[in-house]
Amino acid sequence: MHIDIITCLPRLIESPFNDSILKRAQTKGIVEVNIIDLRPYATDKHKSVDDYAYGGGAGMVMMIEPIDRCLTELKAKRSYDDIIYMSPDGQLLTQSLANELSLKKNLVLLCGHYKGVDERVREHLVTREISIGDYVLSGGELAAAVVADAVVRLIPGVLSDETSALSDSFQDDMLAPPVYTRPAEYNGWKVPDVLLSGHEAKIEQWKHDHALERTRQRRPDLLKKHQ
């Protein structure tokens, strides 16, 4: 997979890709992440990427021309499956959407900032908009990092145990069951006996039952999909 991330604040997003799973995925050559500074695509001497909104109102708006120039250059090099604008009113990021995007080959993540982008960017230049929740961030950089992390970890070969991602919360529209590790007893708090039994069928049934109960208690809305 190849991911290009367009931002006017590249240092804000570099850190998540320099450690842990995202770093290992790049080292293995499974994914290539390219963080692109938008400012060199500005046309004035001040490298401005934003301007005042027509019609007035508070906040600056990212201009269409630098974004279009950047995307035009990128699209001359490869064909993209999706050009995604990180937006608070976009499609909500879910595990099923992350699964879908993990099958793509080339993605662009466009990070908004200030008051957002010129509406013509949304109308003509992007193919999809994604939100990570019903709240507003200072910019799309952190949201883009979240999307990249959720997607990249699903690509075969990224995780040392590929079944790990398949057992995460939300993969089957339920929360994950409780998990334990050594020691088997600590301060009088014991790991459930069934998990120490070695009886695979009973363990799987225990996990299913507790995943279902945890979902019922914490996210009953997810159970509507099963019903």
Score class of each variant (00 low, 15 high):
residue 139 G to L: 07
residue 166 L to D: 13
residue 156 P to S: 08
residue 151 V to M: 10
residue 134 D to I: 01
residue 134 D to W: 02
residue 142 L to K: 09
residue 129 E to F: 00
residue 168 D to M: 11
residue 153 R to N: 05
residue 146 V to N: 02
residue 129 E to L: 03
residue 112 G to N: 04
residue 164 S to D: 07
residue 146 V to A: 08
residue 111 C to G: 08
residue 168 D to V: 06
residue 162 E to D: 15
residue 146 V to K: 00
residue 123 E to T: 11
residue 142 L to I: 13
residue 117 V to C: 11
residue 170 F to W: 10
residue 131 S to F: 00
residue 145 A to F: 04
residue 127 T to R: 04
residue 168 D to N: 15
residue 164 S to P: 01
residue 122 R to G: 15
residue 144 A to H: 06
residue 171 Q to T: 15
residue 158 V to Y: 05
residue 146 V to G: 00
residue 141 E to I: 06
residue 139 G to C: 13
residue 153 R to H: 05
residue 164 S to M: 05
residue 115 K to M: 06
residue 147 V to Y: 04
residue 159 L to G: 11
residue 143 A to H: 09
residue 123 E to H: 12
residue 117 V to R: 06
residue 114 Y to S: 09
residue 150 A to H: 04
residue 128 R to Y: 03
residue 123 E to W: 01
residue 158 V to E: 06
residue 162 E to I: 09
residue 120 R to C: 11
residue 143 A to L: 07
residue 110 L to G: 03
residue 111 C to S: 10
residue 135 Y to I: 01
residue 144 A to R: 06
residue 150 A to P: 05
residue 110 L to T: 02
residue 168 D to L: 07
residue 155 I to H: 00
residue 171 Q to H: 14
residue 156 P to W: 09
residue 133 G to A: 02
residue 111 C to N: 10
residue 149 D to K: 07
residue 137 L to N: 10
residue 142 L to E: 08
residue 171 Q to M: 13
residue 137 L to W: 08
residue 158 V to D: 03
residue 130 I to Y: 00
residue 146 V to S: 01
residue 148 A to H: 04
residue 164 S to F: 05
residue 155 I to N: 01
residue 114 Y to I: 10
residue 122 R to P: 03
